[in-house]
Design a protein around this nucleic acid. Structure first.
Length: 574
RNA sequence: CGGAAUGUAGCGCAGUUUGGUAGCGCGCUCGCCUUGGGAGCGAGAGGUCCAGGGUUCGAAUCCCUGCAUUCCGACCA
């Protein structure tokens, strides 16, 4: 393609709406433009990248035996009522009415539609298992879209759904998808890590893994063992509980009875640590939650935080939120900051495993301006309900190998695979007839990839001070051909010949035929970041051009023939 | 949803405190010059100053309301 006529508006300055690197780069390099918050127009260059990613995903999915189809973005509300998600999904679901006032949604995902389709079309065990997918635009009315394509309200996603007669069959397809996802993320050139994850709103009963691209701006924290291959999302990572059993079984009897201490206006653990001069881990931090409209007091160690997802799972709860100040006073009789597990009535009590491992500590007294010291778990408050309800912290022992230490990394979730089970097939009544002519509920899996988000993720990982460094596999063009001076007939002639010849080889070439100064062209070229640059300059008359690799900066002067060989070798992989 | 900031030319910003009729840099157009790392000189085009209401002889500037964008937090795939 000739750059002169292409919509490729590069920017010298960064629009102020962009904060993170990938967002800045995609605006500066002319890949996208924002329409409204979280919604973008893909310009020609950006669209080419998107299509390349899409095609890699498509090729690998097809290779795995999945079949592509395409469902509508617009979906009738009835289906969402059937699964209950019309009510459960919340304000992220974009709802609208047609001219007859019928309710519709813009699909944030397609479990309902696909399950309903398969229910109608697949009735026999002979047709199963089956795995279908689409690459389709999705809508989620995010509370806070941010970071460009990283978290948009409109985004491109590959979503696949598999249907099975047995859990064994589901497991096979799941493993196949796990492999396929690894292949996809390797091909697009990302450093990533599959991690154990929480099923969240999509639900499901079986395994699920997220494919996390490692990047500082990632919105998720992932816990990785420095010794074995354990890796999990922080919200899912299990706290190793070895210290618990021992300590919990034998409460310290040495300690004197607990006593009240005056702690005026000392509400936070930090304040207590500095006032009392004790370590944070000797405090019993007590928080009051409202779980499905009932109060639940939760005790964790002072240096730990509550993991709300674990708590939610523990109660199999629909809703969970921190109690407000009024509720806290009503239930505990004390203002926020002074509540503790000792003598607490009117509420359920859940104690974290690590708390059960503490011999003696300090807790709130359920009275304004007072705490209790010499509090012994099991003696002074019940250890009836002990569970893992905290976030792991760095340095924790690995729950898998029990040897390594947990380290934290930030990750961008670019893929997620689930063993769903029957969460959608039951309400939609998707069944098949088995060998005995008996109706059975289909067992499902689902598998998503954030196609547009991958573009952001690649930019986060693959750039330098001068701009983007595209991996060859998803570069919008493979070669940037730059005649330095388009008023020099020799340069133009040489460049045109090379342009034609490379294209005949099936190589994608962007030729900068603009009447710009060399400096401008080079700066733009570095910014756009195509893998190979060929400069046709003063030595064009002698048949010499400059060949430069964007990633390494390696550059050499070659004859036209050598350059041609070098390019085809590099790009076509010979 | 809570907190904060911002909104003036395509992009980045000044002007707002102290009201007086719109500026700078980059980009864009034309001419000259220049052609290997965002050159130089000259001449131009381009603005509902986010919107609506109010105060005033007069509002980008003061007041009220709303909207948008961004950041932090909460929430959530």
């Amino acid at each position: 393609m000739r750059q002169n006529r292409m919509i490729l508006p590069t920017l010298r300055e960064v629009p102020k709406e962009a904060e993170v690197t990938s967002h800045k780069l995609m605006l500066r390099a002319g890949l996208v433009r924002q329409l409204v918050a979280g919604v973008y127009t893909y310009l020609p260059l950006g669209l080419r990248v998107l299509k390349k990613i899409e095609n890699i995903v498509r090729e690998e999915m097809n290779k795995s035996g999945a079949q592509e189809l395409q469902m509508s973005v617009l979906q009738p509300a009835e289906l969402w009522h059937e699964t209950g998600r019309w009510d459960d999904y919340g304000p992220e679901l974009v709802r609208l009415k047609d001219r007859h006032s019928r309710d519709f949604v813009l699909g944030p995902t397609h479990e309902e539609v696909i399950t309903s389709l398969i229910k109608q079309e697949i009735n026999s065990y002979k047709k199963l298992p089956i795995n279908v997918y689409q690459i389709q635009t999705k809508f989620r009315d995010e509370r806070r879209p941010r970071f460009g394509l990283m978290r948009g309200r409109e985004f491109l996603m590959k979503d696949a759904y598999s249907f099975h007669t047995s859990y064994e069959s589901l497991s096979e397809t799941y493993d196949e998808m796990y492999k396929t996802y690894n292949a996809i993320f390797n091909r697009v050139g990302l450093k990533f890590r599959p991690v154990q994850a929480n099923a969240g709103a999509i639900g499901g009963s079986g395994r699920n893994h997220e494919f996390m691209v490692l990047a500082d701006v990632g919105e998720d924290t992932i816990a990785i063992c420095d010794h074995c291959d354990y890796a999990a999302n922080l919200e899912q990572a299990e706290a190793h509980g070895a210290e618990v059993a021992a300590a919990g079984a034998a409460p310290s009897t040495e300690a004197p009875a607990f006593e009240k201490i005056h702690t005026p206006n000392t509400k936070t653990i930090d304040q207590l640590v500095s006032t009392l001069g004790l370590e944070a881990q000797t405090f019993f931090k007590t928080l009051l939650y409202v779980v499905d409209d009932k109060p639940v007091a939760v005790v964790v160690r002072g240096d730990h935080e509550v993991n709300e997802l674990k708590l939610k799972d523990l109660f199999d709860a629909k809703t969970l939120e921190l109690a407000d100040d009024a509720t806290i006073e009503r239930v505990t009789g004390a203002p926020t900051g002074f509540i503790g597990p000792v003598g607490l009535k009117n509420t359920a009590l859940v104690v974290d495993k690590a708390v059960a491992g503490v011999q003696v500590g300090v807790a709130g007294a359920n009275e304004r301006d007072y705490h209790l010291q010499n509090v012994v778990p099991g003696r002074d408050f019940a250890l009836e309900r002990v569970a893992d309800i905290r976030n792991v912290v760095e340095g924790d022992t690995c729950p898998s190998c029990k040897e390594g230490k947990i380290e934290f990394y930030r990750g961008i979730e670019c893929g997620h695979i689930f063993e769903l089970g029957t969460k959608y097939s039951v309400p939609i009544n998707a069944t098949f007839l088995d060998e005995n002519q008996k109706a059975q509920t289909m067992i499902m899996g689902c598998y998503g990839i954030g196609v547009s988000r991958i573009m952001s993720a690649v930019l986060e990982q693959s750039h330098d001070d001068n701009g983007i460094v595209w991996p060859l596999s998803i570069a919008p063009f493979q070669v940037h051909l730059i005649p330095v001076n388009v008023k020099d007939e020799t340069q133009v002639k040489v460049a045109e010949q090379l342009y034609t010849r490379l294209q005949q080889q099936g190589i994608e070439v962007l030729m900068d035929d603009r009447d710009e100064r060399a400096g401008v062209k080079f700066k733009d070229s570095d910014l756009i970041g195509l893998p190979v640059r060929v400069t046709v300059g003063k030595m064009a008359g002698d048949g010499i051009v400059e060949f430069k690799v964007r990633q390494t900066g390696e550059s050499k002067e070659l004859t036209l023939e050598q350059a041609f060989e070098e390019i085809t070798g590099l790009v076509l992989g010979q």
